[in-house]
Design a protein around this nucleic acid. Structure first.
Lengths: 204, 204
DNA sequence: CAATTTGTTTACCAAACGGTCAATTTCAAG
DNA sequence: CTTGAAATTGACCGTTTGGTAAACAAATTG
């Protein structure tokens, strides 16, 4: 059945990259087509609008990230080490992006989300859904840490939302200041936020 | 000498309002002129570009906010009460904006800052400067609280940057989720972040 | 009042933009 | 090898955009 193509995937990658580096509003459909080496006619063959493409690109990216999240937050890892792994990964990733692009890019969910949440309901919903899924990872780690007495008791869902706000807040500051070193001790600061104590010797 | 006008001020308020409600990129010069009831010719009489206007509008807004900051962080107020005052004000303000516009608008420094920090160096610098000035207020409150033994010791400038990341991070989440209730207990959560203990009875 | 400065208006331009379409190419399956 | 579905192309259109310029109106000053 006819010709095959990966132009849609090239468009999604190009769109996410550009929106991440610049912003949603600063990127035109022509820009995306140019980076993806796709003609505008083909763009409209696959997608209805820039908004449509953005939703698809965000979903695709989230699916690709899932494996990383699953590994970092594997139940076989000690709960606080999961959080450490996530934070350290974030720092390394931002360093890599900075050396590649020259800019601290931060988190596209937050930068794009904050930009267009009041303009495009579809994109807002998609970003909310991805953020909610991510929060689940934090929440389970917090719950497990509480079981082990490493974090004070209290609604883990609430704690997860707060620690996510802190984590994303730090990343946003790093982007605004174009300073990746803000994230150097991210793990330490996030764990301190959770009042995490170092593991105590178990008393039998 | 010559005609007088406040068109420039109308343009600055219109620009900030629109950028805050939508985003920097979603607002055109025509949009700004329309809301300010100023013809485009007059726009270019006062400003060179949208970027120029944005910088002026941010600076003007920061000057207007200064009185509020000075009052909230007055040294005559107990240090932790300054932080409480700021957080409670933020919640009330976001509630008011939400009832007026129907949307949680968050903090323009962060939403606009995160949007265009990698596209417009002038705006980034202006926002960085305002954020740095705001951080000073937090820092002095933290330092005074440490003197009174209400917050654990440790570099107050560092603590201020972290608590600002948390504070702004919560506001960003409220914007993305269009949910102002995320900020209801902002003061409590921010103070918890600082490990603030309730004032202890002094032992003489 | 005349001259000058300051601000306003209108019309206009070229470029960029989102979006459409019919013609065409590619390729897999019968 | 044909046929038809899937994908690509390039030309095209109307609108919006940022930006300019020259004529005009208002207020200040001497």
């Amino acid at each position: 059945m006819g010709r095959t193509s990966n132009a849609d995937e090239r468009l999604m990658t190009a769109a996410l990259d550009l929106m991440w580096e610049e912003s949603y509003g600063a990127v035109s459909i022509d820009d995306i087509c140019q980076r993806a080496t796709v003609k505008k006619g083909s763009f409209y063959y696959f997608f209805d609008s820039k908004s449509d493409l953005a939703v698809a690109a965000l979903e695709r990216s989230a699916q690709a990230q899932k494996a990383i999240w699953d590994e970092q937050f594997s139940p076989t890892t000690a709960p606080l080490d999961r959080i450490r792994a996530r934070c350290d990964y974030t720092y390394r990733k931002q360093v890599e992006l900075k050396t590649r692009t020259g800019k601290v890019l931060g988190c596209p969910l937050c930068s794009v989300g904050s930009e267009i949440c009041n303009q495009d309901e579809k994109i807002r919903e998609k970003i909310q859904a991805i953020l909610a899924a991510n929060t689940k990872y934090w929440e389970s780690a917090i719950r497990d840490a509480q079981t082990e007495g490493l974090i004070a008791p209290g609604d883990p869902a609430m704690k997860a939302r707060c620690v996510l706000a802190y984590y994303e807040g730090m990343i946003t500051q790093a982007r605004i200041h174009n300073d990746v070193e803000i994230l150097r001790d991210l793990a330490t600061q996030v764990l301190a936020h959770l009042h995490a104590k170092e593991p105590q010797p178990l008393v039998a």
